[in-house]
Design a protein around this nucleic acid. Sequence first.
DNA 1: ATGGTAGAAACTCTA
Length: 254
Amino acid sequence: MKLATWNVNSLRVRLPHLLDVLARHAPDVACLQETKCEDATFPTAELAAAGYHALHHGQRTYNGVAILTREPAVEVCRGIPGFIDEQSRVLAADYRGIRVVSIYVPNGQAPGSDKFAYKLRWFQALQGWLRQELASSPRLAVMGDYNVAPEDRDVHDPAMWEGKVHVSAPERAALAGVMGLGLRDAFRLFDQPEGSYSWWDYRLNAFRRKMGLRIDHVLLSPALAAECRACTIDVEPRRLERPSDHAPVICELA
DNA sequence: ATGGTAGAAACTCTA
């Protein structure tokens, strides 16, 4: 079983890149973030032609999450139950005995801002919900754009980023709270190259200069972590013309 | 330069 997650930053624009990623990796499950489209304009037919069923929790202009699967998924849940949120950031479904969650954590803008407070509130709601999900679904994979770099080794220049959004102590504590439920960072189950990142700012030639952050994660429950065989970041799509600013994360289970 | 690029959409917001 192979899982993938990718913040595509507009599914319409990135569809050719996505089809290439699906063809090269052939994941059984692909979680997408920032589809930036409504259900009505979701490219259902193109993805079906590539061999994928799609679930979408979309909205106009911003946000939007999807789950692609080889066969239809069931027990679909849109949003965090009990948490009122106008922004489409969470989609969950059962597929082949795995509870799959595609998440797009709020960016947070800057510490001290209203958006930052929303990010921390959102994390609290996520943690409360995932505690319940773990209890009912021991085979749980929560994957997506967390907008938090867990450790300094996930940051190209920790001194420059200290206290900044994606790296600040409150955000790291919020992510640690989620991981404290027992979820493992699949990427860190294995030896990885130094300077492994999943996002590079479009500005200042950040990708070429290797100025990135690792903010996209596959978190696995203990049962799935025990079956995890590999987890890698595919930077190739970031090299293409008109790339997403994020790279896909690929995770292989036994 | 309180910067810079990209996407969606509308002439601004979000990231």
